[in-house]
Amino acid sequence: MDNHYSIYICGVGGQGIIKTSTIIGEAAMNQGLDVVMSEIHGMSQRGGSVSTELKIGGYNSSIIPNQGADMLLSFEPIETIRGLDKVNSETKIVYNTHPIIPSSSDKPYPDVDSITKTLKENFKHVLPIEGTRLAREVGSVLALNMVLLGAVTADDNFPLSKDSVIDAMKNNLKPKFHDMNLKAIESGYKSIKG
């Protein structure tokens, strides 16, 4: 099953989730790998939950089966919980710890530390990162998606090289942001690799 890799990416509309996924997909294509991706448009974008699914290596379906993700990459703490159907005992769970509180929430927002604690009780690879803080440090909270992109490339099983991901980033985002985005990718990478 070499080079089979499925990533479920989730968060909130406006966080740059589709762009991040597209960059990974394009990098996979450039490395000569089969890749399919699924995204949701329309009604779901009005501040609602957003997710994309990306599958590398010989799949026809762009939807990840339950418990089929190698990585769950979440841009927001409670969206991590919503994505757990895709997770199995070996899945890397990488998530940004900065909450976005729903405007008309029917229930109180849970404590983020307790989310981390509960996840660690149940899963082997739980990797919370302070993505929003790291993004702010490199210049803008809008670089959050690049921080998380860097975190993905730090997974040893991830079949793409950091360089090819960076090339695809440059092909998809404006040159004036390249320096900041490179710092963000590096920052996310280091937050996992240490």
Binding site: S44, G47, G48, I78, S105, K107, E121, N122
Partner: peptide
Amino acid sequence: DVDYSSSLEKLSQDIPSRAPVLC
């Protein structure tokens, strides 16, 4: 079926919804 801790079951049921809203 995969068994998770009761705290995770509870957390999954208790997270606030995030439906689309008027901007």
